Computed example of a mutant assay.
Amino acid sequence: MGYLILGSGGLGTALAHELAARGEEWLLAGRQSPRGLDPTCYFPLQEVDPLSFEALFTLYDGASLPTVVINTIGLLSDLNHMPERRVEEVTPQWLCESLQANAWPQLALGANLSRLMGPSSRLWLCSLSDLAGSLGGLESNGQGASRYSYRMSKAALNMGARILAAEWVDRFPGAGVITVHPGLMDTPMQQPFKSELDRTLLQDPTQVAPRLLDLIAGLTPAQSGSFLDLQGQPLPW
């Protein structure tokens, strides 16, 4: 079983270390090569644009595809933008950047995989989502009515997964798509907001990684198109 991991942040790096410890075949694509990992298993993916994804998938021309693809790419803030607390703070630029970072990579992966898969291909595509993007769970998922661009882009990610899963049912019945809410993690993404968070809820990515891998290993075809937590329980859309 081969793995392709997108994103070399806290969870992506933890997944690579866990897979290395398990003796699995893996490739990590991200902006930086983590320390302590085999550099030959790293691909520099500096941007989330079509050319970067096409370059990545040239590695699979004439080669076996991974059987598990995990997309950990995500964006909550950057040096110039913080999550919006009021609607007056929403800008078209940041909304588009959030959609490109949080929703588009899954579609780019789906498109490139679809070009290479055949009717008998068996593969799982898993993207990291967030309960913050749940329409049905808005009142109970924390942070009140804030983080417009982040929440909207994660909701778009979930919808994209459902559409892609429905398309693959006919084209590639052995392939599936899910989104997973892993819960809060102690990663650089949360660094600017730690004072606002309950520290007891922050998980170490090294603890999340094996649970996520075990969840994916136990998936059934009927779960394709689902939004799940780490226990495999369905979450509200």
Score class of each variant (00 low, 15 high):
1 M>N: 11
17 H>F: 10
19 L>T: 10
21 A>C: 06
24 E>M: 12
32 Q>N: 12
46 Q>K: 09
49 D>V: 09
55 A>M: 11
56 L>K: 12
56 L>T: 09
56 L>S: 09
57 F>V: 09
57 F>G: 11
57 F>M: 10
60 Y>W: 15
62 G>F: 07
64 S>N: 11
67 T>A: 14
69 V>I: 12
71 N>Q: 13
77 S>F: 02
83 P>V: 00
84 E>D: 05
86 R>N: 13
90 V>F: 08
93 Q>D: 15
94 W>C: 00
98 S>Q: 07
100 Q>M: 13
104 W>K: 11
104 W>L: 15
106 Q>H: 15
106 Q>N: 08
107 L>M: 14
111 A>Y: 13
111 A>K: 13
111 A>V: 11
113 L>W: 06
115 R>H: 11
115 R>E: 14
118 G>Q: 14
126 C>F: 04
138 L>C: 07
141 N>Y: 02
144 G>W: 10
145 A>F: 12
146 S>E: 08
149 S>V: 06
150 Y>G: 01
151 R>E: 07
151 R>A: 06
155 A>M: 07
157 L>E: 12
160 G>T: 04
164 L>H: 05
166 A>R: 13
169 V>R: 15
175 A>R: 09
178 I>G: 11
180 V>Y: 08
182 P>T: 07
182 P>W: 05
184 L>V: 04
184 L>G: 09
191 Q>F: 00
192 P>K: 05
193 F>D: 09
194 K>Q: 08
197 L>C: 08
203 Q>I: 02
210 P>C: 10
213 L>C: 11
214 D>H: 10
216 I>L: 10
219 L>M: 09
219 L>G: 12
222 A>I: 07
222 A>G: 05
224 S>C: 02
229 D>F: 02
231 Q>N: 12
232 G>I: 01
